[in-house]
Design a protein around this nucleic acid. Structure first.
Length: 483
DNA sequence: TGAAATGTTGGGGCG
DNA sequence: ACGCCCCAACATTTC
């Protein structure tokens, strides 16, 4: 093993793990003394500074990473500032580091900032190396036959299945050498990542953001639920999804190791490939798209949607955010989001559809709300999901697909179990009316403890009318683009 | 990773 | 037994 006398900074970002971690593995293999660093510079993420729920998770992920490092005689050095580059320079000066390694980020702000830093450090003759540990494949290398990025999922997926699956990158942690003297680190608390108002009660109850717990979840899921994922994933009352999205966002679990864990635990059942493992390709697809089309976090991928006739209405937006639309499946979802920092994926699609179609609010408003309230808020996935719903993205639903929130509820929460969990005011409603309480007479409703528009709102807009508004708006869009 | 409108078919009730 | 109607069930098309 080569012996390096100078310390190497391993700059952690959205790869908060010590396994399947290329930058760290490389630094150890090269024999460097390791200096693990995290720099908090939210201003550089503008306009997508991490939101409240996301910061909460980050706090715990950082604390956990530090704990893990201490098992190997190391620790996480935390810094903060306006400029990551300036903070790195300070650390280089303080420690005499001559090398710096990191795993690449692929979102627009990250790429721009990182490449600037890279060339600046290289000019100082530092040994700078970046790696891919976040995605299965390097997005620059995945193109279709005509040399352009894939814009449709199925061909993308089919193509990748013909390519070798990248292997997990082992990290020889027992060989980890620490710097002799650690530079000063800020206390984690000083980053103020925890919410000031007590918003985290439900988060604490639902989540255990430490790697070991997340791995347990991954193993259990692989063993017990992965096989039935395809049958269960659309039912929000069932615990049928992995709920590991925040672990993937923060890189506490890497996609390659996840892939292999699930295959192994699921005894290589071929159905896994088209079921749960396919979801890892959706994540891959969203990230590749944002990399190739970096403007899409702010603007539609399909330019003709620039002139979509959105109808800004703060009261609509507020009702949606608070879970007061009068559509139980929507309101349950929005309250699950607020309370737990997470929402079941089927319900995400339904609430998004109602905001964008029935209420004609700009998809960016929805994206911003999700950004602030989801513990798994991820720019690529969030952008992709919202543009998909709004019909303006890659492989998007055709515009005339308007979800019927009543039917969706009946189909995917037939007993109303999910609804009642988050809307206890509807506890006594029979399943026949749980998705449309307003269809019950006022007298009967009162007998079930509900007064409409007092205990629970009537629909913010009747479904047929909402559907028509959406169809009209899209017709108007068409007109504007042909005129 | 829709839903609604419209079209078609076929079984059963009934004169 | 037959024609007619109704309508549920399913299929197709349209938004």
């Amino acid at each position: 093993m080569p012996q390096e006398t100078h310390p190497a900074i391993v700059w952690f970002r959205y790869d908060l793990r010590l396994h399947d971690q290329d930058a760290l593995a490389y630094a150890i293999e090269q024999g460097h003394e390791i200096l693990p660093v995290f720099i908090w510079a939210p201003d550089e993420e503008s306009p997508w500074e991490p939101g409240g729920a996301s910061r909460w998770w980050l706090h715990h992920a950082l604390a956990d990473l530090d704990t893990q490092l201490r098992d190997y005689g190391s620790r996480l050095i935390i810094r903060t500032g306006q400029s990551t580059q300036a903070e790195l320079q300070k650390l280089i000066k303080e420690t005499g580091a001559k090398s710096i390694f990191w795993n690449r980020r692929y979102e627009p702000a990250g790429i721009k900032r990182d490449s600037r830093i890279k060339s600046a450090l290289k000019e100082q003759n530092l040994n700078v190396q970046s790696f891919n540990a976040t995605l299965l494949y390097d997005p620059t290398k995945i193109k279709n036959k005509s040399g352009t990025p894939f814009k449709v999922f199925t061909p993308f997926w089919k193509h990748l299945r013909t390519v070798d699956l990248p292997k997990e990158r082992p990290v020889d942690l027992d060989s980890l050498k620490s710097v002799k003297k650690f530079p000063k680190s800020l206390p984690l608390e000083s980053l103020n990542l925890l919410p000031r108002i007590s918003w985290d009660h439900g988060w604490l109850e639902m989540w255990q953001p430490q790697r070991e717990n997340l791995l347990t979840r991954l193993r259990d899921f692989g063993k017990n639920q992965a096989a039935s994922y395809e049958d269960q994933r659309d039912f929000p009352a069932i615990d049928g999804t992995s709920q590991l999205s925040p672990a993937f966002h923060f890189g506490q679990i890497g996609p390659r190791e996840a892939f292999q864990h699930i295959r192994k635990q699921g005894k290589h059942d071929p159905a896994l490939e088209t079921g749960v493992l396919r979801q890892l390709y959706w994540r891959e697809f969203a990230n590749h798209l944002l990399f190739h089309f970096p403007h899409t976090s702010e603007a539609p991928l399909r330019p003709e949607y620039q002139s979509f006739p959105w109808q800004e209405d703060p009261s609509f937006l507020r009702a949606w955010q608070r879970g007061e639309t009068g559509y139980p499946i929507v309101d349950a979802g929005m309250r699950q989001l607020w309370q737990t920092g997470w929402m079941h994926n089927r319900v995400r699609m339904i609430v998004a559809s109602v905001l964008v179609k029935h209420l004609l609010q700009h998809w960016m408003e929805g994206a911003k709300w999700f950004w602030d309230t989801l513990v798994d808020a991820n720019l690529a996935n969030n952008t992709f999901g919202w543009q998909w719903t709004a019909g303006c993205g890659a492989d998007a639903a055709p515009y005339f697909r308007v979800f019927n929130p009543i039917m969706q509820g009946e189909k995917f929460d037939p007993q109303g179990k999910y609804i009642k969990k988050f809307l206890p005011e509807l506890e006594k409603l029979p399943k026949k009316y749980i998705h449309q309480p307003w269809e019950l007479g006022a007298l009967e409703l009162r007998g079930l403890g509900v007064t409409l528009d007092k205990d629970y709102p009537s629909p913010i807009i009747p479904h047929p009318e909402g559907r028509q508004r959406a169809l009209d708006a899209f017709a108007e869009l068409k007109k504007r683009n042909t005129a």
